[in-house]
Design a protein around this nucleic acid. Sequence first.
DNA 1: TACGCTTATTCTCGGAGATT
DNA 2: AATCTCCGAGAATAAGCGTA
Length: 301
Amino acid sequence: MAQYDLPYLPPTRRPCEPHPEVLQQFEVILDENCWSRMVSCYFYYFFQYVPCNVRAFLAEYIDERKKEARKLGKEQVEPALFTHEGRSYNALLKHRPNYTKFCGGEWNTFADDYELCAGDHIEFEPPDEGLNLKIQTYRDDKRLLPLPHVALDDLSSEDFDHVHCCVYSKDIELTYDQTRFFLQRLFGDTFICCRPFVHVLTPTNTKDCVMKIPRSVVSTLKRWVDMPTNGRVTLEAPDEPTHVITPSSYYICKNDGRMVIEKSSFRDFISAASFVEKNVVLITFKELHDRSVSIIIQRIL
DNA sequence: TACGCTTATTCTCGGAGATT
DNA sequence: AATCTCCGAGAATAAGCGTA
């Protein structure tokens, strides 16, 4: 361990305070290297030095864990950064006589996913066992979430397209966690493959009980099921404490192609499902056994 | 001819108003 | 009162135009 005791001293920094011998947790304040170090016009790479007062400990600790994992024949024999959101990054830990740093392609991905920049904090928690280094990211003491689109990364290209054609009411911006929840709802059941609709309930919906489905959603729905100008539908809220099912009807507005839900049944429906103003709902469609259509309305937040 | 910027046109959707 | 059409602000898209 002695050979690694030479501290890395960033040009603008003083040596770090010595750290207690047993380390439960440590924090790294990101510097400018963490997010933009240009190699050429086209490539960037990112890395982050580990403070000199903890690097020896961390390197030794990880080394022991690696040996342990190999001995036990574990699948994972390299350390990984495991974020609070359950995302795992196999960033490289480079331990050299005069510096220790996290780097490599997966560190880049991590920096991209969380849009890290200088001044952000990362809290590291070495694991009691295994090689997942638990981390939490902060900016100004506020926990940093990955960018929403990161939640999409395990989707097949078909599912990715399906998510991207989703119609949103204006002023909706979902966070990473909300996007994940929305995706779980969207792929949690088999719906008609038309454009999904994410809508924030307004007083027009909750007080006047007027509910209109956008033209672009309706036109894609028509590719899969027969939707005459007037017809019967079922309104369903499957996730509420009681699975709400309300028979209803609709008409399609001649002028703009929107589907308008019949008022009184929509009123019954939102009161039974306890939907209120500012709730964000995912609206999808299902074809029932008798070939009628059910409008599935799931609360996202 | 490709590109970027500005202007014109069309489309959308929330909500008001007319009709049944 | 419910159903349906229409209006208008803002967004999205297309067209026009100048520059390199």
